[in-house]
Design a protein around this nucleic acid. Structure first.
Length: 294
DNA sequence: AACCAGGACACAA
DNA sequence: TTGTGTCATGGT
């Protein structure tokens, strides 16, 4: 439930929610526009500057302008996601249970499809801090300015597909994205033309939506699954990146040779309808084990 | 100085 | 179908 704070501040919303790990959620490689500053998390969602912090019993989020409804933010943050039900549906295998325990309060964000897809096109063979830098440059140069608090530095929305399609490849390369520039530009053109229409993909079947995404240049199985899971609500999508590849082989197939195709078949049957959440727990857990923040 | 990073793609065998 | 080289860039 959302309600105004005691001061009746129209810029702030509070969500009463148990088990919400804000740092793990905002900084676990799902979204790339959040950063910790002055004791809170700042980011831009759907063209709105936001500042979020954890409080006893929930979250407090401040915007730069009054909001007549906060439903969009509750949806983005997945405040009402039933973590218990998802965890309860998992197979009782030791590795997954260990990962789940270490990821209490981790959520799957519901991002805007275009921003999510474009960001993950930029993610290939890049470390998370570098992805954040590229996305930041892209927004500064080609995104629309958004309202910010007084004295705050300018912030920008994620650029539309049409705007990025209008960029030259050289302009995009100048954002330090290397060979990904051509992929981003061509995919932006397709999306801007409604081929495919990202706004209707969520209502299609998982295989259909995945196939549509994979028809885009620079979008293979992994990046398609990221967009399906982190923005389109396909909770069964299971992105297999290098970390998950290592984890699955080590935890479930020690000293056996398994192809990527074989691993996909395994994940589709083993983890159940919320496989994507299992994946995010394993990913976060592996990175915790590695003791890195990258 | 090699090696790797939330991969995709063309091309070989 | 499955394996290898290539593609930029920045960090260990």
């Amino acid at each position: 439930m959302a309600f105004a704070n005691p001061a009746n501040d129209p810029l702030t919303v509070r969500f009463t929610v148990a088990d919400y790990d804000l740092p793990a959620t905002l900084n676990s490689g799902q979204a790339f526009r959040w950063h910790f500053e002055d004791g809170a998390w700042e980011g831009v969602v759907a063209g709105r500057w936001l500042q979020a912090r954890s409080e006893v019993g929930g979250l407090a989020v401040r915007a730069a302008q009054p909001q007549r409804s906060w439903d969009w933010l509750r949806h983005y943050l997945a405040v009402e996601e039933n973590l218990r039900a998802m965890v309860a549906s998992f197979p009782p295998d030791p590795p997954l249970q260990a990962a789940v325990v270490a990821c209490r309060g981790l959520r799957l964000l519901r991002q805007e499809p275009w921003e999510c897809l474009a960001s993950f096109i930029l993610s290939s063979t890049k470390q998370i801090p570098q992805i954040q830098q590229i996305v930041a440059r892209l927004c500064e140069r080609y995104g629309e300015p958004v309202a910010v608090p007084d004295e705050h530095r300018p912030e920008f929305a994620f650029p539309s597909a049409a705007r990025l399609a209008a960029c030259t490849e050289a302009e995009l390369r100048d954002c330090r994205m290397g060979f990904r520039a051509r992929y981003l530009r061509e995919t932006a053109g397709r999306v801007a033309a409604g081929d495919p229409d990202l706004s209707t993909l969520a209502s299609r079947s998982l295989p259909e939506a995945r196939e549509a995404l994979m028809s885009l240049p620079g979008v293979g199985r992994k990046i398609a699954d990221c967009a399906l899971l982190f923005s389109l609500g396909f909770s069964a999508a299971f992105p297999v990146d290098v970390w998950i590849l290592k984890a699955l082989r080590q935890l479930y197939f020690p000293r056996r040779r398994v192809t990527l195709r074989g691993l996909h078949a395994f994940t589709e049957t083993h983890f159940g309808p919320y496989a994507g959440y299992a994946q995010q727990c394993l990913f976060h857990w592996m990175r915790q084990q590695a003791g890195r923040v990258t």
